[in-house]
Design a protein around this nucleic acid. Structure first.
Length: 1103
RNA sequence: GCUCGGGUGGUGGAACUGGUAGACACGCAGGACUUAAAAUCCUGUUCGCCUUAAAGCGAGUGCGGGUUCGAUUCCCGCCCCGAGUACCA
């Protein structure tokens, strides 16, 4: 039979699935090899031909490693939390879990038909509770840890507490917030528990703090720095503004240095490492304090210079009395002629003199108005304002005027710079603009037209530094500043702590509840904290995140220590945690209220009492800080009756409803009039409501009885990168419900040996993953410092768009006539994207075009040479450009083996390139040719048992070695070419010998697994054994030649080839060559000056 | 601006540590088979010149220079394309 790829591929895909051929074993004597792909977000659009590129490469590699005797872990899963499913949910009301499920099914189908050797028994999904349980668990470990700089690792927060108890805060060397308190051991012990918790939060590796965040109103969420590009959201391109919000953050900055150093130990593409280095942004310099001149309100003129000296504060006296700057050129400090603060700097208001207030306020207002983008685009215009205040230069006690300007960024360093106009171009321009002095401080500096940042030469105008060079000068000035307490050497990082909350629904809930406004972890036993159901995927009316809509979603802390005894246990739990005095008061109010019901209340009560609705209803019942008119605790329904005055009170009522919602109650309201008019109708509505409501899930403890206040959960969810920051460990032991992966599994698989994915994750996923990995290492939960030893970025596959050209008539309207690309210069036309699937080799299929869209039904064409030629452009592959090529179509036409090989054949894996289907025929022909080697003219399987010839063995062993070399350096495209060469050679040799073909099947099987499995069985082997066959051993003897056709060049120009025995030495070769008649002809009587002979390579004659 | 990639036929691309530039494939042209088409097979295909032909000559890896017997490969300067990043003090 001819090559029937459809049957063959289906058959083997089914076989692999049924026999779990690629299931990896956690117990194996074989060496391990972990090949990982960046798992996809399952989007609604499905896969296009760009997606599988990396998967094919990693699959070839994984299959190859199996042949080489490795125990290969090659899993796949889905990063299935994320925005698109949620946006879709907002538009359609479809639950994101359903959308996600559907999309995953499509992905799975598409992946399966490409024939990947994934171990599907290990599939993970970040959105499934048994996965995100561990995301939450790791979050808890981070919360329970702090970073000990002395030990240079994360440690348990208990250790910090123990230290505080013993030594107070002195001597602690931690990565923490800036506003930490200093206290003694006794003071610590005297603190209330809440105060202690508040202080500890400043040390925890994940913490809650008011931070400036990137707020994207359109998406309704904050975004991480890496999710913002040029002031717009990376997803969707919506504007992003800076906003202060209470936010969860991860103290990734604790790991800045280790993240930087680790880059030198891993085999990653240099550009990617460079991106991470830039992102971390380490700069070595010094921090210097410039004391603020006393009494900024008095006019500077009133003081003498003598006073200035006296008034200068001794540095380091405390915050607010000096301005701290960070500089990488502390050696230029004698050139400081002004200081500049960011307009947002917190000291600006207090340092602005009354005379300057109007100017400063105007400037701040103006710079606030400028969008982030304007601010970046407009780097030429100099702008700023004088505050009226002065600071003192600590090295020479000179008065230095203090300005604000938006070229200083609040977010970097201290938000303040010491300006040295002679050395910094921005400072130079600023000084020119405001007519400030420019002092040269290095002898060779040239500052007539611009700043000169040179480090060469020696210092001038620099007092004690005069005459010194850069290195000595820097050391000297730091020594001076340290002696005076005015500064010290400092390393600064650009990287900020990562914001860890999103005001979104479709993400991991944060396992935290609030008590007295302080966050507390839920009990580990209560993991996973499930994502609750909500009615709409939108923020609440009060602007809370969508989780605020969840009813009955509250945390009940476990009594501590646990006690037996039903209700009383819960009462006790509440009493420990809530304000008992207030609650008692509330209960009294309730009792009073019950005695004095309004008319409406009374009428309704008669219809609700004694389970008349089928449910127990209480009246005037205290819940949290409120008293509900009526309530069913069982169903969580609060019924409120509003008098007229309530209308005036709408805001307070809404708030109350909101809080009750948080506590798990639905609220329905009736007016007194409604009840008085038809009480039965109201009672019936209440009954219907009760029936339709589900049971309240969480029964919350309160005082008097079981119901009432419980603790609110955190309402943000985790960001998209949470689950992907450890998922590679979960694959090692995906079903484990005791640990995220067992110690044993981690000890065996250790880390990822090869990781393939796109470079778009450079500063997001790949940085966060390294951070979590280092943390897990510190906690002794994993064994390697770096998670991904070797990483390869596959290039982007761009789309190749085709265009047709529509003729424009005299009135400028589009006609229904289309002009071929070669002729468009002679006509007035405009271009239209045309579906690339109805274009072949840039020739439009006119019939398909007419069917493509209704309005083209009667299209006419102006052709060239009888054909309609389309225009071409390289663009991003996207639906709207009609240039998406779907792998399904190609598989249907050519099969998966052809697609796999063609994607590799396209060019080097790491290079970006446009997709072009033009060459795919060649690969398909190759596979048919390969198939034919095993078959006779009538397609009967026929393999000879004869001994192979030397030429056949040579072809085989060439390819054996080539594939070894190519796979090792991830050069898959060159292997494909070599396979073609091998098959061409064997076809020419008419080789159908088992001794050759059987090995060839093994070698090719990682690239084209289906056809090889089929031939393997035809060769009489057991089905399924090919994947674990031994890769043929390369024997160099088969490649040894007796002769070599030496290229003979004269003065470096190749003239001819000469067959010479390889046994000859260079001198013998030389004489053979010179003696040759043809060579003599070229020499034309001249005698050679010099002859270079490289054995087995070349002969070059110089004349 | 800075950092990192990359410029090779009509196209995708190959060429190991400096040693026959253009492998392999697409496309194109011509031919065979066929009533015809598809499929398949064969031949040619860097450019220019010369030639009936065989053959020959010259140029050529973005541009200009250098090192070398010999450079797509190494060095210097420049141009262009792509990616990342940006008042980072």
């Amino acid at each position: 039979m001819d090559y029937q790829f459809k049957d063959i591929e289906q058959k083997w895909q089914q076989f692999w699935a049924e026999n779990q051929t690629f299931k990896a074993d956690n117990n194996s004597a074989k060496p391990k090899y972990y090949v990982l792909d960046m798992f996809p977000y399952p989007s609604g659009a499905g896969l296009h031909v760009g997606h599988p590129l990396g998967y094919i490469a990693s699959d070839i590699f994984a299959r190859y490693k199996r042949l080489r005797g490795f125990n290969v872990l090659h899993p796949m899963g889905y990063d299935s939390f994320g925005l698109p499913a949620e946006q879709y949910a907002i538009q359609t009301g479809q639950h994101p879990a359903i959308t996600t499920e559907t999309n995953i099914a499509t992905y799975r189908r598409q992946l399966d038909q490409i024939g990947f050797s994934f171990d599907w028994s290990r599939e993970v999904r970040t959105s499934s509770p048994d996965f995100y349980k561990w995301t939450q668990w790791i979050f808890m470990q981070l919360f329970n840890s702090w970073y000990n700089k002395t030990a240079d690792k994360a440690e348990s927060i208990d250790k910090l507490v123990a230290y505080f108890e013993k030594n107070g805060s002195s001597g602690i060397n931690a990565v923490c917030d800036e506003d930490i308190k200093t206290f003694t051991a006794a003071e610590w012990k005297a603190m209330s528990n809440n105060d202690q918790q508040e202080e500890l939060l400043k040390y925890r590796l994940t913490y809650l703090r008011e931070s400036t965040v990137n707020w994207c109103a359109a998406l309704g969420t904050v975004l991480a720095n890496d999710e913002v590009k040029d002031g717009f959201s990376e997803r969707g391109g919506y504007p992003v503004e800076q906003k202060k919000m209470m936010q969860w953050s991860m103290r990734i900055t604790a790991y800045a240095e280790r993240l930087l150093q680790g880059l030198d130990t891993i085999d990653w593409p240099e550009p990617l490492k460079e991106m991470q280095r830039n992102w971390i942004g380490k700069s070595v310099g010094a921090s210097v304090k410039f004391p603020i001149e006393a009494s900024p309100k008095s006019s500077p003129k009133e003081r003498t210079s003598n006073e200035t000296g006296n008034n200068s504060l001794s540095p380091g006296e405390g915050l607010g009395e000096a301005i701290e700057v960070f500089t990488t050129r502390v050696d230029t400090i004698f050139g400081v002629t002004f200081l500049v603060l960011a307009p947002e700097h917190e000291l600006v208001p207090s340092l602005t003199t009354p005379e300057q207030k109007a100017t400063v306020d105007a400037y701040i207002a103006q710079s606030k108005k400028k969008s982030e983008l304007d601010r970046m685009a407009d780097t030429k215009t100099v702008s700023g304002a004088f505050t009226g205040s002065y600071v003192v230069n600590p090295v020479n006690n000179e008065r230095v005027p203090l300005y604000i300007a938006d070229y200083v960024l609040a977010g970097y360093g201290t938000g303040a710079v010491m300006a040295v106009p002679s050395g910094d171009q921005r400072d130079y321009l600023f000084a020119k603009h405001f007519d400030l002095p420019i002092i040269p401080i290095i002898d060779i500096q040239k500052i007539e037209t611009e700043a000169d940042p040179t480090k060469e030469g020696t210092y001038i105008n620099s007092d004690f530094m005069n005459g010194l060079n850069y290195k000595d000068g820097t050391a000297k000035v730091i020594e001076f500043l340290e002696g005076k307490g005015a500064g010290k050497a400092k390393v600064n990082f650009r990287m900020r702590d990562a914001i860890f909350g999103r005001q979104r629904y479709w993400g991991e809930p944060v396992p935290v509840y609030f008590k007295d406004n302080l966050p507390h972890l839920i009990d580990e036993k209560d993991l996973p904290l499930l994502l609750p159901e909500i009615d709409k995927y939108l923020p609440t009316e009060t602007g809370e995140p969508p989780l605020g809509r969840a009813t009955g979603w509250n945390y009940k802390p476990h009594p501590n220590p646990p006690r037996e005894g039903g209700l009383k246990e819960h009462v006790g739990a509440y009493r420990e945690t809530a304000d008992p005095v207030y609650y008692e008061q509330l209960k009294e109010f309730s009792r009073d209220n019950r005695k004095q019901p309004t008319e409406a209340e009374n009428i309704l009560w008669q219809l609700l009492r004694n389970n008349q609705t089928g449910f127990k209803i209480r009246r005037q019942h205290a819940i949290d800080q409120f008293i509900a008119d009526f309530v069913s605790l069982e169903k969580g329904l609060v019924i409120e009756l509003d008098g007229h005055h309530h209308k005036l009170n709408k805001e307070a009522d809404d708030l109350r409803t909101e809080i009750l919602n948080h506590l798990g109650f639905d609220v329905i309201r009736f007016s007194n009039d409604e009840v008085l008019k038809s009480p039965e109708k109201v009672a019936d509505i209440i009954k219907q409501n009760l029936i339709s409501l589900p049971e309240r899930k969480k029964v919350s403890p309160t005082g008097g009885d079981l119901e009432g206040a419980a603790f609110e959960y955190e309402l943000s969810t985790m960001p998209g990168w949470a689950g992907s920051s450890f998922y590679w460990y979960r694959y090692m032991d995906p079903k484990n419900d005791k640990e995220f992966a067992s110690k044993k599994a981690i000890a065996y698989w250790k880390d990822v040996d090869l990781y393939i994915g796109g470079s778009e994750h450079a500063t997001g996923h790949l940085l966060y993953s390294r951070f979590w990995n280092k943390f897990l290492k510190d906690m002794n939960l994993v064994v390697e410092e770096e998670p991904f030893k070797k990483l390869i970025n596959q290039g982007m596959i761009q789309g190749r768009s085709n265009f047709v050209y529509r003729l424009i008539d005299d009135e400028g309207r589009g006609t229904n006539t289309f002009v071929s690309h070669g002729l468009i210069k002679q006509y007035k036309t405009y271009e239209l994207h045309v579906d690339v699937n109805i274009v072949e080799n840039d020739i439009l299929d006119i019939n398909k075009f007419k069917q493509w869209r209704d309005d083209f039904k009667d299209a006419e064409f102006i052709l060239e040479n009888g054909k309609y030629v389309c225009g071409v452009e390289i663009e991003k592959m996207s639906k709207s450009k009609f240039n998406v090529v779907n792998p399904d179509d190609l598989i249907a036409k050519y099969g998966a083996d052809t697609l796999r090989m063609y994607e590799m054949f396209l060019g080097p894996l790491e290079q970006s390139k446009p997709w072009n289907t033009n060459g795919i025929e060649g690969v398909f022909k190759f596979l048919r040719k390969f198939w034919k080697l095993f078959h006779d003219e009538q397609f009967n399987f026929r393999v000879s048992e004869d001994a192979p010839t030397k030429a056949e063995l040579k072809s085989l062993h060439k390819i054996i070695r080539k594939v070894e070399e190519d796979v090792d350096r991830f050069s898959f495209n060159t292997s494909v070419s070599s396979f073609m060469i091998a098959v061409n050679e064997l076809t020419d040799l008419k080789c159908n010998k088992r001794a050759i073909l059987q090995d060839l099947v093994i070698v090719l099987s990682s690239y084209a697994p289906h056809i090889c499995e089929e031939l393997w069985v035809l060769l009489g082997k057991e089905a399924g054994t090919l994947s674990y066959a031994a890769y043929p051993k390369f024997n160099p003897e088969y490649l040894v030649e007796d002769e070599f056709a030496y290229p003979i060049s004269i003065n470096g120009k190749m003239k001819m080839n000469l067959n010479i025995s390889l046994s000859l030495d260079p001198p013998a070769i030389e004489s053979t060559v010179i003696a040759n008649a043809d060579v003599q002809k070229y020499l034309d009587g001249k005698s050679p000056k010099k002859v270079i002979v490289v054995k087995g390579r070349i002969v070059n004659i110089v004349v």
